[in-house]
């Protein structure tokens, strides 16, 4: 069944989009990530113009983050204060990101920049995760107890000034890295259409030493607002948010997420991380190939002020 997307201005198959949303929802339920980093490249592979894929991806991330946050709020695994400081940084980063986004679009380098960012970030995160999970798998196989990092360990980040106390996270840390992290995620959110959970979660755990149980809830909490802000700014400055497209993805995603969460319970943590790492790497490689393979058309047209 074909449907015409009003903003992307192309006809697409409803079932492909629902399936895409459901598949990504399944994975995001399984791995506890927002799924934006999968949705946006998939949309680009499906010939949605990258500018629209990014803005719509940000919109879609809101839906999956809201349902995630609701369950974390119930369990009390959410640090509102930490989330709010991250959010303040996020708004700054996101504003800068939108400006860069519009600039790149004007000079015709947006598509390239989006692909490059995806390849670099997904490649790095996927590679690190794969190494870490394979080591963990080896360790459990050889019977050795996994080495856990203690949350009391200090690094250079804890020597920065302007310290602030975050009670729910049992944390006393400078606001500078928190704001900086928020700003970085906000920047990526507006340029890549991702919530940034796949960077936020490891950064909170390894850099700020936030206890793992509050990390996902807090990251999701701030992602809702960062992506909402990103969506709003994209809608007003670039008119690239396609609600029809976003809604189809959300509908599929919300349904897929529960089955994913169920399936995730049957797999062990390291196996889950190794699978996610492989998936992330696969997306990165696919995008990288497109950068290097000779395109069928060397010339492209774009309107002035249009995509």
């Amino acid at each position: 069944m074909g449907i015409y997307l009003p903003i992307a201005e192309i006809s697409v198959n409803v079932f492909v989009l629902l399936a895409m949303g459901a598949a990504v929802g399944f994975l995001s339920g399984m791995f506890g990530v927002g799924g934006g980093f999968l949705i946006t490249p998939l949309l680009i592979f499906y010939n949605i113009p990258p500018a629209i894929a990014v803005a719509t991806g940000a919109n879609q991330v809101i839906a999956s983050s809201v349902s995630g946050v609701l369950s974390h709020m119930k369990r009390g695994t959410l640090d509102f204060k930490l989330g709010s400081v991250l959010l303040a940084g996020g708004v700054i980063g996101s504003t800068g990101g939108i400006y860069v986004f519009a600039l790149l679009r004007r000079v015709g380098q947006l598509d390239l920049f989006i692909s490059l960012l995806y390849v670099i970030l997904l490649g790095t995160v996927g590679g690190l995760m794969l190494v870490e999970s394979i080591n963990a798998l080896r360790a459990t196989r050889s019977g050795a107890a996994p080495v856990l990092k203690k949350s009391g360990q200090h690094n250079w980040i804890h020597r920065l000034p302007l310290k602030m106390r975050f009670r729910a996270s049992k944390l006393f840390v400078s606001v500078i890295p928190v704001l900086g992290l928020g700003a970085g995620i906000g920047f990526l959110s507006s340029i890549m259409g991702v919530g940034g959970g796949f960077i936020m979660v490891p950064a909170l755990i390894y850099l700020l030493k936030v206890p793992t149980n509050v990390v996902i809830g807090t990251s999701l909490f701030q992602i809702i607002f960062t992506s909402a802000y990103t969506t709003l700014v994209h809608a007003t400055t670039n008119q690239t948010v396609d609600v029809m497209l976003a809604f189809l993805l959300m509908a599929g995603g919300v349904a897929g997420a529960q089955y994913g969460a169920k399936a995730g319970q049957r797999l062990r943590g390291e196996q889950l991380r190794a699978l996610l790492a492989l998936l992330v790497l696969a997306v990165a490689i696919r995008l990288a190939i497109d950068l290097f393979v000779t395109p069928p058309n060397l010339y492209s047209l774009s309107g002035v002020g249009l995509y």
Binding site: N59, I62, V66, S71, T231, V243, F247
Partner: peptide, 21 residues
């Protein structure tokens, strides 16, 4: 009405997420 449209897109996503839950 791009601002209102953006607000609508966000609300739609939030309601969908909440309903999904």
């Amino acid at each position: 009405y791009s601002f209102l449209y953006g607000v609508f897109a966000i609300s739609l996503a939030m309601v969908t997420g909440w309903l999904g839950r």
